[in-house]
Design a protein around this nucleic acid. Structure first.
Lengths: 338, 338
DNA sequence: TCTGGCACTCGCGACAGTTGAGTGCCAAGG
DNA sequence: CCTTGGCACTCAACTGTCGCGAGTGCCAGA
């Protein structure tokens, strides 16, 4: 167990290092923080902190920098979440209001988050797993081709082509549309399969093929679209660290293009509350020298998706966490209103 | 007017510089190309080329590198378009086949192009200005709210909410849907406004408000969606030049996030045929040290959108142009089939 | 017009010397 | 037992010098 003062020293090291981006020494620490002790004492504390693995020296005659473990302790026990200023809150509101479209909401969110945190922002599209069906529309495009349009309560629209085994009558299609909607509208995606299970049986034999084809496509869409999409922005912010890591930027950009990686990363985050993953806590190799701050957001009580930022492990955690949380809340509100 | 041999020297310089990424000197040139003359002669030619502004020296005792003007001459008169290898063609086909969705087509295209050229790829979503209407669907979500869904022949689906002045009957809606579709299906977006102009008059007085509201939203959607979206990929490729331009990468990333800039850039490209913009020919400041190779693509004879790559002015123009052209053709085919 | 020769330029890497921030350790004092 | 000032030590970073070599421009001769 570390004494109170040693924790204070660690906090000071993290804060200074985040600010200056340079290894911090004992003398500088005592000058910039009112620790009430001399540099020599701080040196002893630093030696202990280093033994415990919270800080490290890049080379022998240099100051200390926090390790991943040090940052972890910092965010868990030393850092609060810094609330945004009034001006920032107003900026969020101005920026988010006037979004017309789901795409627009996500797009604005990602730009906003990138701008506030000056880091790379990642926003997952609202998930469909907990979404409900608002409407299913069927359109005959040609005698044996039907377009299926699925509209969700989060404002998302998905369309699929259905090739039917035989010609489809307009009345039969209207019938199917009506019966299908009466069963699934307002229901959760996860409930849909069993709700429509016995639907084909209630149709005439010669139309069952069509009904089955349509249902198959619908279920497929529900499953496929559960695989989430996401939007990223603010990649230019990576270059702020290019003098530190000219080499590190490439794997990060590559990882950002692999949506699978990011989705997995967001998926690992807790459903509620904020999750911070630091450096090597991230499984993906290219992101080993970055940290991810993620949080769920949603229109109601439940989180429907996640959003967050990716930045260097040396980031302003309290500020970043504050921004991420505030943005998530706002997006939730916007989604709830629409 | 430059002599044939001097053009040959310029071509050799461009090719060598693109390959080695280092300023090329007279001796190295004669060794790697069969110019049939001595280094001294080449030096004289180089002096002339430098006077004319086609090449420049980074510093006094260094080799020459092409200027923007030099690259311009190269692509205009010296470079052909290098066709792709059979293996590459097959790779394109494998990669593009199996796209299910418009999003998927665009996504695959952008990844493919980035991979083939090892540069940043930009793909514009198929434009709606020349698209035709495949279907317009109207769904009553609540007594006075209607959802309008527009489906285009390029497979794109757009939806908008319409708040109606009064309650809307299901039969009236069906009537409107039928009449609207009979007028606009198969017609071009640009023709739609005049085709629906007199539609409200043919309805009962108490329904004209609703009809007008729906039409207004429809026309608005057509206009709004003419503002294009685009997808970019392969930004990690920018880091290949980070040792050259550690400083240049940031404005490029910033420009890439400004979709407006990119859309303008693509918009400036010729509708048919390939357009190459080199260095300072690009108005946007951040992209002054990059080149853009763009080409239109489409499902029929007309181009419905553009795609291209952004890379350093020092790029392999023949190869890049070949890849861009080939990909554009394939995407055109895919779109025509679906 | 081309070519070989020659003097000149200048970026670059190697090397050595100096500086200074930072450290670890120790002995003395509270 | 903790804190503190002192002291010797380490080592990255900076500076200045120097030689190398690629590359150039110019010129006289073929």
């Amino acid at each position: 167990m570390l004494s109170e003062r040693r924790l204070e020293v660690l906090r000071a090291i993290v804060q200074d290092y985040v600010g200056t981006e340079e290894p911090v020494g004992s003398k500088a620490l005592t000058e910039r923080h009112r620790l009430g002790v001399s540099p020599a004492t701080v040196r002893n504390d630093m030696a202990v902190l280093e033994d415990e693995g919270y800080i490290a020296q890049p080379h022998t005659s240099a100051g200390r920098i926090p390790t991943d473990k040090g940052y972890r302790l910092f965010v868990d026990r030393l850092a609060g979440v810094k609330p945004l200023s009034g001006a920032e809150r107003r900026a969020i509101q101005n920026f988010m209001d006037g979004a017309v479209d789901l795409d627009d909401v996500v797009g604005r969110t990602v730009r906003l988050l990138a701008q506030l945190t000056r880091q790379v922002a990642v926003v997952q599209y609202p998930s469909l797993t907990r979404s409900t069906v608002r409407h299913v529309e069927l359109l005959a495009l040609s005698p044996s081709r039907v377009m299926l349009v699925l509209i969700t309560d989060t404002g998302r629209v998905e369309q699929r082509m259905v090739d039917c085994p035989g010609p489809v009558g307009e009345t039969a299609l209207a019938d199917l549309r009506a019966r299908l909607n009466s069963r699934v509208v307002g229901r959760r995606f996860s409930d849909v399969p069993q709700l429509v299970q016995d639907l084909p049986e209630s149709f005439e034999t010669d139309e069952r093929g069509t009904v089955s084809a349509v249902l198959a496509t619908l279920l497929e869409t529900l499953v496929e679209e559960t695989e989430e999409r996401l939007m990223i922005g603010g990649t230019a912010n990576l270059t702020r660290f290019v003098h530190d890591f000219p080499l590190t930027i490439r794997p990060v950009l590559e990882a950002l293009e692999e949506q699978v990686v990011l989705l997995k990363l967001l998926g690992e985050a807790k459903d509620s509350g904020m999750t911070v993953r630091i450096g090597h806590e991230i499984a993906h190799e290219g992101l080993n020298s970055t940290s991810v701050v993620a949080v769920g957001y949603g229109s109601g009580d439940e989180a429907v998706a996640k959003l967050g930022v990716v930045g260097p492990t040396r980031m302003d955690y309290p500020g970043t966490m504050g921004a991420v949380r505030a943005v998530a809340r706002y997006v939730g509100q916007i989604l709830a209103e629409s």
